[in-house]
Each structure stands twice: as structure tokens, then as C-alpha cells.
Design a protein around this nucleic acid. Structure first.
Lengths: 212, 212
DNA sequence: GACATTTCTCGTACGCGTACTGAAAGTACA
DNA sequence: TGTACTTTCAGTACGCGTACGAGAAATGTC
């Protein structure tokens, strides 16, 4: 008999050894020493398998002491989500479904934390849901875009990507881009997320409670 | 001899007929009546083929009269990008690479427009680049998440996704989520993007020019 | 015209995800 | 004990992206 726990263990072993892009139904079955089709009796889909792995991953994130200030609590929680995804960008690709919320398991506290922060700041429940949604959009976008662009240096064979962007631009038509020039690439990407997140949260909270 | 134009035509025909998820190298070759591997002499990759299609799609978007007010110009341009992607969400999945900017072809004016708006508003070039970047993150995230969740109803077979979210939540631990309840699903998603975009832009511009 | 070089064409093959069949082997319950 | 159900697994099949390498065709050069 093969149990769910054994499967997930083997999957983690496989991912740890060969990377998450090498995870396949066939390889996992081989790792377990069982037939390929047997796996489909424990797991509906490859996506289902991935969701199980992600749920476990998310559940393992410890719930930290969050600041009492609503705005700071929202930002801290979002950053936590972001960091977790950044450490495993593959999860973001799978989680790009709204249904993910139902799969969160123990780690719903992240959603609760952000929604609660928004409500405590004076948002209506509807606005609070929107706040979470917008933060989620922004976070997923940042992770996915960065994960992809970080992959680029791997295949440095493409010469078009190596030369400065906007090289053959007509200065009369695109004056600002020409002025920006190579600054595009050389930006430190470290605090980018934090910056955008703060702007977004400030904007959202200001929108929701204009009198403040 | 097979030309690039013929390939792209056939690809568009195929996508129009069977949907963009049915586009495959093999089917495209069959549509053209040529061998599968022949395609690889005109196109490096499947991704390359997709980027060609997207470039053409983007180039075809007409450049409208944009408002003179910097903030409004930024929002109008971002909305344009968003609408274009929403009409063809598949493009967003492919474009999730920073290198996309080099592939924009004629439609760089969108980037120029946003960067120019930010600079006109008082941002430094570096800040302006960040403004575009954040808007891009948010837009891509919104498109990808929404595209995925819109696909969900297709396979309504999964019962777990049908029942109300957060059903079995412990009220004492997740009070806010329980309070929000089913509002999660019933939100009108129409103006969501516009709302979040405005919040983000306002936050970004306020961050860049705090004295205003 | 003869040759070399580049460009184009395509068959074969590998690994992948996944569906279907059919048949063993184990377990549960009568 | 027999019977029904679940779990396991091999085999086969389909379509996918694409690496390899062998030919065909076009093009340039003398």
C-alpha cells in the first residue's frame, strides 16, 4: 500500500535532489518503485500533486508575532507571503488560481491577517477583500516576472537580450526612454517589492478611508 | 520555401479556429503542410513563435490620444495594456519575462508613455522605471490570476471548489474571514483592476514626490 | 559549368503527461 | 467460505516539445 505521506515524501526528495522542474509523474513513480498509473489512484492530477505539496509548504510557515499597527501588519504579512513564494517561485505558478484560497489549509491566517488589518484600519469587509486581492495580484506578478527574468541569464546564448534595451529607439518619438537608457537593467531589485507594496497599500488604505 | 508571414498566418488561423491552447508545433506544421522539424528553422522555439505572435498583436494596437495630465496618462496607458492582455490572456503568460520590453517592437510607446508620465509628474528616471515596473507587476498578476480563476468553472467536477470558501473555519481564530464570508466570491470583478491601479499609481506618485 | 557553403526540409527518437483496458492481489463483509 | 470492492500495475496509445543528424535545395564563387 502506498500512502499519501510516502508520495509527498518521495516528491520532496525528488525535488530536493533534481529540482522542482524535474518532478514528473513517471519519475516520482520510479522513485517510489511503483507503476506510473498507480499514482493516479492517490492523486487526481499532476496539478493536484503540486497543490498538495504547496499546501504542506505553506502550512509549515510559522505564524510570527505581527505588529499591532494595521498597516504594518498588512505589509508584514504580505512580505511573508512574498518571501515564501520567492523561495519557491514554482509555487506561484501553480497558485495563480483564485481557488487557491480553499487550499491554504492551516496557513489561512495569512489571509485573515491582511483582511483583519484592512478592517481594523477602517475598511468595509468588501473593501478588505479587495485589499487582499490587490496585494495578491501584485505579489504574484512580481514573483512570476522576476522568476522568469532571473531564468534568462541561464541561456545567455540569445544576443538580443544581452545588448542594451531600447537601443534602436527614435529619440524624437521616445525621448524619455532614451533618457532612461540602460538604467533599466542596472536597478537593484532588492527592495523593489517592498517599495511597490508600500505604495499599493498606502493607496488602497487612502482610497478606502479618504477622511483619514 | 516557407516564410515567416505564412507561419504567423497559419498560427493565427489555428488559434482563431481551435483556441490558443491548441497551438502546437506539430499542429502548426500540419496546418502548413510541412514537416514538424522544418518549423524550427524559422522559429527557435515554441516560445519564440509565441513572442512573434504577441509582437504582432501588440503592434496592431493603435496609439490613442492620451490625456495631458501625467497621472491620467499613466492610468490610461496601463488600462490599455491591461485590456489588450485581458482580451488575450495567453499573451500574459508568455510575456512574464522582463526581456519582453525588447520584443515590443512598435508598441514601445506604451512604456514610453508611462515612463514619461512619471517623469512629467516629477519622478527621477530611476523612479519612473520603478513606476512602470510596479504597474507591470500588478497588471500581469491581475491578468494571470483572473485568467486562471475564470478557467475554473470549466471543470466544475471538483466539489471542493464549489462549496463556499472558508467553510470550516474556526471563528475564534479567524474572526474576520468568517465575517467576510461568502462576499469573497460575489464581488463584481469588473472595476477591480481600475481600482487597484489607481491606488497603486497614487501611492507610487506620492512616494516619489512627497512634497506634492 | 563545377564546386563549396549555407539554408531548408524532414524522419527518427527520447521523455513527458495522461487516458484506457484488463487483470491480478489484497481487504471487507455476508 | 464466497463475493464484492479497492488497490496495484503492466501494457498500449495519443499528442506534445525538441535534440540529432541525414539529405535536398538554394545560393554564392571561381
Amino acid at each position: 500500500m502506498t500512502s499519501r505521506a510516502q508520495i509527498l515524501d518521495a516528491a520532496r526528495r525528488l525535488i530536493g535532489r533534481d529540482g522542482w522542474d524535474k518532478l514528473s509523474i513517471r519519475r516520482l513513480a520510479a522513485e517510489l518503485g511503483i507503476g506510473t498509473m498507480t499514482l493516479y489512484h492517490h492523486v487526481r492530477d499532476k496539478e493536484d500533486l503540486q497543490l498538495l505539496l504547496i499546501t504542506e509548504y505553506a502550512d509549515q510557515i510559522p505564524q510570527p508575532d505581527l505588529p499591532g499597527e494595521p498597516r504594518e501588519r498588512i505589509i508584514a504579512t504580505a512580505t511573508l507571503i512574498h518571501d515564501a513564494l520567492a523561495a519557491w517561485p514554482w509555487a506561484a505558478e501553480v497558485l495563480t488560481a483564485d481557488g487557491f484560497v480553499g487550499r491554504l489549509g492551516e496557513s489561512v491566517w495569512m489571509v485573515e491577517s491582511i483582511v483583519a488589518g484592512a478592517i481594523d484600519h477602517g475598511c468595509t469587509p468588501e473593501q478588505a477583500v479587495h485589499v487582499f486581492r490587490h496585494i495578491w495580484y501584485y505579489t504574484v506578478g512580481e514573483i512570476l516576472v522576476r522568476a522568469h527574468s532571473a531564468q534568462q541569464p541561464a541561456d545567455a546564448a540569445r544576443p538580443a537580450d544581452r545588448e542594451p534595451l531600447f537601443s534602436g529607439l527614435d529619440e524624437s518619438r521616445m525621448p524619455r526612454l532614451v533618457a532612461v537608457g540602460d538604467q533599466w537593467r542596472t536597478l537593484s531589485a532588492q527592495d523593489t517589492y517592498s517599495q511597490g507594496l508600500r505604495a499599493l497599500v498606502d493607496g488602497l488604505l487612502a482610497q478606502a478611508t479618504p477622511e483619514t
